[in-house]
């Protein structure tokens, strides 16, 4: 069957199924199990109202449990078994990872990514937000800097291949080098260590727009009086920015920073497309995909390591959310 037709049928079944489920389950609860009539009417209405939230929540809880909670346990359990999944080898996969040079490179590189990508994107985003604030064509500028957010990581990687190409007639970097009189083109993606930074530039390029949008909203939220008071006291624009505005935006900056940090730990596309993890550019997400389909035990072990790195941020997020609820 044509996949598109299959897709349309799925939409109808999916949407119809959801609506049908919610409608019918409410109907069943209200009229069959706890009918709001007869001598138990009052009690039945109360009971129905106790059950109803769970009717509303059930599909979501089921899907979340299956696709996000179960995998945490499932992946960990699988990571304790060998490649074929037949023999229990305890922490064998983790030991093998610890002993592997490539894993160590991946962890080290990931550390660099986590350090520099959020920092770069947040800094550029903050700069863009401040510069475009109250500017006449600020919205146009913002929209253009924000645009890479819509582009896939694969598309972005291809875009940057045209910047990094090892050919002065295609790659912008080599063209500039040639214009400056350097001899011969170089492949920046093969320069040991620094090639990681050329890859990070791509993600910074994408994420700056995200940081900018959120930080510029935070900038708008700063009370005018605080800035005016500083102006009257003779503060220069830099002092106003760093001493008045940035401290008031700190909460938002932290949120942006952590959001991008989490993203960095998930993105495998850029490394996969640009270098395939060669030339010492491996990071954990791409390292995991190198094992996917070949050695599930090792792959799940890498995935679980990523989970462990994300865990502190997760706990911090949950605490923040709970504090807000109170």
């Amino acid at each position: 069957m044509n996949p598109l037709v299959q897709g349309l049928i799925t939409i109808v079944i999916g949407v119809g199924g959801c609506v049908g489920y919610f409608y019918l389950s409410n109907l069943v609860v209200d009229h069959l199990i706890f009918p709001a009539k007869g001598k138990n009417a009052g009690r039945n209405i109360n009971r129905a109202n106790k059950v109803r939230p769970w009717l509303f929540l059930f599909p979501a809880i089921f899907a979340l449990g299956l696709y996000l909670v179960y995998p945490v346990v499932g992946s960990f359990w699988r990571s304790l078994f060998n490649r074929a999944g037949t023999d229990f080898i305890g922490l064998g996969n983790y030991m093998a990872l610890a002993a592997s040079d490539e894993f160590r490179t991946a962890v080290l590189n990931n550390f660099l990514w986590v350090l520099f990508v959020p920092a770069g994107a947040t800094a550029f985003g903050l700069l863009a937000a401040q510069l475009t604030d109250k500017m006449r064509w600020g919205n146009v500028a913002k929209s253009l800097i924000f645009m890479p957010m819509a582009i896939s990581f694969v598309g972005a990687s291809l875009i940057w291949k045209f910047v990094y190409a090892n050919n002065a007639d295609i790659g912008l970097i080599n063209a500039v080098r040639e214009a400056l009189g350097a001899s011969g083109p170089i492949d920046v993606l093969q320069i040991p260590f620094w090639n990681n930074f050329f890859l990070m530039v791509i993600l910074i390029w994408i994420q700056t727009g995200f940081a900018m949008v959120i930080l510029s909203a935070a900038l708008r939220g700063i009370p005018e009086e605080t800035v005016e008071a500083a102006v009257i006291d003779g503060a220069n624009p830099f002092q106003i920015f760093f001493k008045i505005k940035v401290p008031q935006m700190m909460g938002t900056i932290v949120v942006v920073w952590t959001t991008i940090t989490i993203l960095v730990l998930k993105v495998f596309d850029i490394v996969y497309t640009m270098t395939g993890g060669n030339f010492g550019t491996q990071i954990l997400p791409s390292y995991m995909m190198a094992y996917m389909f070949r050695d599930d035990g090792r792959a799940t072990a890498v995935a679980f390591v990523i989970m462990l790195i994300v865990l502190p941020v997760m706990i911090w997020n949950i605490r923040q959310a709970r504090r807000e609820l109170r």
């Binding site: 979340l64 696709y67 996000l68 179960y70 499932g74 997400p285 799940t300 995935a303 994300v310």
Partner: peptide
């Protein structure tokens, strides 16, 4: 409250975990 906190927590669970088991 617990469910809301759980949703916030699940926001950051790496997709990678789900690939093999799912």
């Amino acid at each position: 409250g617990l469910l809301i906190a759980a949703v916030v927590g699940l926001l950051v669970v790496p997709l990678q975990l789900a690939l093999v088991p799912m």
